[in-house]
Design a protein around this nucleic acid. Structure first.
Length: 841
DNA sequence: TTCAAAGACGTGTAGACAGCATGTC
DNA sequence: CTACACGTCTTTGAA
């Protein structure tokens, strides 16, 4: 019997598991680090596992889940936490396949999940993003009561400024569960693994072992100098340096040519989107010429993919992508649509594309290995300065080299640029190849994180007194690293802010608690060093030290906001002070928005109501859209320096809507970025062509879709806040109802990208704004009118570009069955209120 | 004629979680 | 307090 089967049998696993692993995934033996980790895992111990990508972390997680939920404690549940929706889907599919014969259910918990997310808490295994888990706990705080094992994937992301704190709060909650589920944290190599492990009360398993060798080298003046080999055999030796042939002005072309010569694929990491696109273009042209000159047929399949993308393109970026792919090279960044991204990743995996030029997106999430990786840029513009990338991030990029199925060795090269290339190469090697990885540092003390989670813990987390709040935050990784005293001031300040905003209120003092804690309070008045370290985050953050905008956003911006409100009275806080969330506060917490966003939206909604009641100033779609772009949850577009001049289009647009703003940024720069974002959404729902928006604003389709997503979410929140707000007298209710309907309409229009008259049509499956507009131009305004089209019209429709007989017939069928299903549901006359009857929303 | 190389100038800078109820080109 | 790459335009020199 093979190794895995024996091992599983001795652990009382059902036989199907070993069979499945062998036949479906081809797994019959374990890698050394897997063996090492397996013992504590099977014993049910907590573990922090830091091993390289592709050395089988996921399998360890899957086996722990089966051991706990089937072998040890049948009927209990497992939670698998991941940072990205794409990863969640990947793990979900894996687990579904694996558990198929075991009779257990897997569910997917991500923000936009369909049916699979519906009954998530009834499933045996729940795969979810950190945020979705947090959100689900907020709406149901017994959510984890039956959980026996928790997997935390990409655990080093605890270090991330915007996403890390949520993971940290999740883990803190899990550590405090009475049922003490097993915790399995999977992480890349980090500097302070011991500290993290001890916080998790976990056994630490660390290893550098890789399933295939990885050869690290630097590239200077076209000379490849091997620096380190990570090998599974014990005597790794460095190859002698060699020099690539090719122009010195284009080292990436030299590398690509060399890679193709050895029949491999190349992954290049660059610092900006623009770089990715232009490098892809250059390489594509060169490769094309090379192929023609040498009379090779390397690009036949690439041309097919390119044609597919081009024929599908509704944007100029799509055109460009199609062009470069036809030359066997693609670029990859967040401006792509999900369709394009998928096609590229597929094309690269199937070896149709020879090189992929990517921004750091790719290093963190997608599992897309290549035979060779070239890190071209090791610096990045961040917070106003060019900074060297963290070691952890560059290691992640380099770790993408080598594909287990195809390559014997993976190669990861770092490019040295500039004058003293050989000297720089030595430095790069020392820092990124031989140097230590940074520590993971908690970012929970950052103001937005504290604000967000403090409200949540009071509203839905069961914390009441100041003392309970303090001890909860003391048990976080932040508190465990630095002690609770240092956090005291920040927590108190934030509690006062939340009280001022009426998200929470103080409901008296628990004298018993207050008396037992007295003098401990005044220990430390100076700002401790750790607080500065945690705040600055320079060089230690994995994916984002701090955003250019957000760099100052933390404390200073919220303070500025408070000053604007002139409401900075300080309430005296005792250890026994008790807090309770207001109705609005609870809703803010379950809406999952930043309390500061909620504050901005509430203020804006109140202004809108006053404007409507008085009838003096306008409340417009643009004004409402602009309001949501004002919130910190909306990632506003950035105004270019050319936009800042008073006669730029954006500036003109801004003054055109001067009297419509329900709230305005203090900084003109920020304001123009928000106007730009609102304008983008306006053009989208006015049915402007994607190409037009792209050109006018200088943005990519992916950026536009992301803003659409954000704004629909925040418009929904706006409506909810408007309806729950209680400052207005009852007789203004009809104004509120009217406004909330407008918000709904606006949200639907932005979601579908169309004017109001198409909203009925776009509700049909297979009909978006483009097809709906075609129908409308043929006189079809309602889905039902499809049935009364003349034969002539129907055949004309079938022949139109973007249509076809299949689509038309499907639509007609859809409307028919829709009619059957809805005929019985006539509006009830007995639901119409009598005159004077109290109006219920 | 084509291409590499280099210098000068103006310009711009990565990514992607969350509500709710169902399906874009 | 701190950079760098791109696009564009230009010149020079070699193949």
């Amino acid at each position: 019997m093979e190794e895995v089967a024996t091992m599983l049998k001795s652990n009382n696993f059902p036989e199907e598991v070993a069979k499945f692993l062998h036949s479906e995934w081809g797994i019959s033996h374990l890698f050394p680090p897997q063996k090492e980790a397996l013992k504590p895992l099977m014993e049910g111990q907590n573990a922090l596992i830091c091993i390289p990508t592709a050395s089988g972390k996921s399998l360890l997680a899957y086996l722990s889940i089966i051991k706990q939920t089937i072998v040890m404690k049948p009927g209990t549940q497992a939670v698998y936490i991941v940072p990205l929706k794409a990863l969640a889907r990947e793990k979900y599919e894996d687990l579904k396949a694996l558990s198929g014969k075991l009779g257990i259910r897997v569910s997917l918990g991500v923000g936009d999940a369909g049916e699979d997310g519906r009954g998530i808490h009834r499933a045996d295994i729940m795969v979810c993003t950190s945020e979705k888990l947090d959100s689900m706990i907020r709406t149901n705080n017994s959510f984890l009561s039956n959980v026996s094992v928790v997997i935390a994937d990409e655990f080093h992301l605890l270090n991330d400024v915007s996403r890390g704190p949520t993971l940290e709060i999740n883990m803190t909650r899990i550590l405090q569960l009475p049922n003490k589920p097993q915790i399995v944290a999977l992480s890349a190599t980090v500097g302070n693994a011991e500290a993290l492990a001890s916080w998790l009360n976990a056994k630490l398993v660390e290893s550098n072992w890789r399933p295939i060798d990885l050869e690290y080298a630097t590239l200077a003046q076209l000379e490849v100098e091997p620096r380190l080999v990570q090998s599974q055999n014990n005597n790794p030796h460095l190859k002698p340096p060699r020099t690539l042939s090719g122009p010195k002005s284009s080292p990436s072309w030299a590398v690509l040519k060399d890679t193709i010569a050895s029949n491999g694929q190349l992954l290049i990491f660059v610092g900006t989107r623009k770089s990715a696109q232009s490098e892809a273009k250059k390489l594509s042209e060169r490769l094309n010429k090379f192929v023609i000159k040498e009379d090779l047929n390397l690009l036949d399949e690439a041309k097919e993919v390119g044609a597919k993308i081009k024929s599908n393109a509704t944007s100029s970026m799509g055109d460009e992508l199609g062009n470069v792919i036809s030359g066997g090279v693609a670029f990859h960044h967040a401006g792509l649509t999900s369709f394009q991204r998928k096609l590229i990743e597929e094309g690269f995996r199937q070896r149709k594309i020879w090189a992929l030029i990517a921004t750091p997106t790719l290093a963190a999430g997608v599992n897309l290995p290549a035979q060779r990786v070239l890190v071209r840029d090791v610096k990045r513009w961040d917070g106003g300065f060019m900074r060297p990338l963290p070691v952890m991030e560059v290691r992640q990029m380099m770790g993408r080299a080598g594909r287990p199925q195809y390559d014997k060795t993976g190669e990861a090269w770092i490019l040295a640029k500039g004058n003293d290339q050989f000297e720089l190469a030595d430095d790069l090697s020392a820092r990124y190849i031989h140097g230590d990885v940074e520590d993971v540092v908690s970012k929970l003390s950052h103001e937005p994180a504290l604000r967000f989670h403090l409200l949540s813990m009071i509203a839905n987390g069961g914390l009441e007194t100041r003392k309970e709040i303090g001890s909860f935050f003391f048990s976080t990784f932040l508190g465990q690293s630095y002690g609770d005293i240092a956090l005291k001031e920040q927590i108190d300040e934030m509690l006062n802010w939340l009280v001022d905003q009426r998200f929470i209120r103080s409901i008296g003092i628990d004298k018993k608690i207050d008396n037992e804690t007295d003098l401990v309070e005044d220990w430390d008045d100076e700002i401790p060093e750790w607080a500065l370290a945690a705040k600055s985050s320079v060089g230690v953050s994995l994916s984002k030290p701090t955003l250019p905008t957000e760099a100052k956003f933390g404390f200073s911006k919220a303070n500025a906001y408070r000053e604007l409100n002139h409401s900075n009275q300080t309430h005296v806080i005792h250890q026994g002070t008790k807090y309770k969330a207001t109705d609005i506060g609870s809703r803010v917490s379950t809406l999952y928005i930043d309390p500061l966003s909620a504050s901005i939206l509430l203020k804006g909604m109140r202004r809108a109501v006053r404007r409507r009641v008085r009838g003096t100033e306008p409340v417009t779609a643009f004004g409402l859209t602009h309001l949501v772009t004002r919130t910190p949850d909306f990632f506003a577009m950035w105004a270019k320096s050319s936009d800042l001049s008073p006669d730029s289009e954006v500036s003109l647009k801004s003054s055109l809507h001067y009297d419509e703003y329900l709230d305005k940024a203090v900084l003109e720069e920020n304001h123009l970025g928000q106007v730009k974002s609102a304008w983008c959404l306006e053009m989208w729902m006015e049915e402007f062509d994607l190409r037009v928006i792209e050109k006018k604003l200088g943005v990519s389709p992916g950026d536009i879709y992301y803003r659409i997503d954000l704004s629909t979410w925040l418009l929904f929140a706006s409506r909810e806040l408007l309806r729950i707000d209680d400052v207005f007298a009852g007789h203004h209710q009809h104004t509120i109802d009217e406004l909330s309907k407008e918000l709904d309409l606006l949200r639907q229009r932005i979601r579908s990208g169309c004017k109001a008259d198409l909203l009925d049509l776009v509700s049909l499956k297979g009909v978006g704004r483009a097809r709906a507009r075609t129908l409308a131009s043929m006189g079809v305004r309602q889905p039902s009118q499809l049935l009364s089209m003349s034969k002539n019209q129907v055949s004309k429709l079938k022949s139109l570009r973007g249509w076809g007989p299949k689509i038309v017939e499907n639509l007609i069928e859809q409307v028919k069955s829709y009619k059957v299903n809805h005929l019985t549901e006539r509006p009830r006359s007995d639901d119409e209120p009598l005159p004077g009857e109290e109006h219920l929303s």
